[in-house]
Design a protein around this nucleic acid. Sequence first.
DNA 1: TGCTCATATGCGCATTATAGCATACGTTAG
DNA 2: CTAACGTATGCTATAATGCGCATATGAGCA
Lengths: 128, 128
Amino acid sequence: MLLKAIADEKRLRLISLLLREKGEFYVCEIADALEESQYNVSKYLKELKMANLVKERRIGKGVLYSTIEPEEDFSRLIFNAILSIPDDYTKRERQLLRLRTTMREGDRCVVRIQNEHWKEAIEKSKVD
Amino acid sequence: MLLKAIADEKRLRLISLLLREKGEFYVCEIADALEESQYNVSKYLKELKMANLVKERRIGKGVLYSTIEPEEDFSRLIFNAILSIPDDYTKRERQLLRLRTTMREGDRCVVRIQNEHWKEAIEKSKVD
DNA sequence: TGCTCATATGCGCATTATAGCATACGTTAG
DNA sequence: CTAACGTATGCTATAATGCGCATATGAGCA
């Protein structure tokens, strides 16, 4: 059920992020942006995929996720509703995602939330 | 959280019903239309009220519920999404609610889903 | 072929949500 | 005041959900 998929705080943040930053992102990039574990982000994406909200595309070892252009009215209107949520809701996550994608090296994960490099990068870019 | 309130099948049906049949309805009427117990419907309505989707008005012993005109963009857009769900979704419930309101006698409950009168009335009106 | 890396998934546990029942609450009628 | 009635709520059992961990899968590379 679509509504159950987005009725969870973490998943709502994730889909909001993807909707605002229109593009394709690797799982590990999303995990870093959300400051969440990789396996949890994988699970979130799975549920969003089952609800037909996101699609995936494999590039080498990595998998790129992006939102789906909805075919049903209901999904489209739900997307509208999500996009009406004030910017602030995903401000930090969007800043982190942008910072993170500047470091992208093909399908290599490069950094990780657990990694000190990432925390340092966050500090230096004065995110938040 | 608004989304959690409507992410439940029963509550989604209830709010859909109220949105389509714009008007005020007694708890027992809604219970009969949904063919659900009174105490569960009370609980559904409570959650919808906490999500600022419905309001209540007491008339004698009974309590009338109706949808709220949303002030937030998000709520308004969610209402749009719910209204985009095909008619069929609440067809039976709307038929039952209409049948039920024709029997209304002020704040008296009159019938009940458990009651044989109600089942007979449903049969006779060839609902569904 | 075997290793490494990015992502996915199965499992056990803790937390939360839900249904049904019994009963409390609030209002009206007698 | 008390009884009756419509509605709300507390309690308990059970089902569903989410998290962290360990590990599986699948692709590229040595």
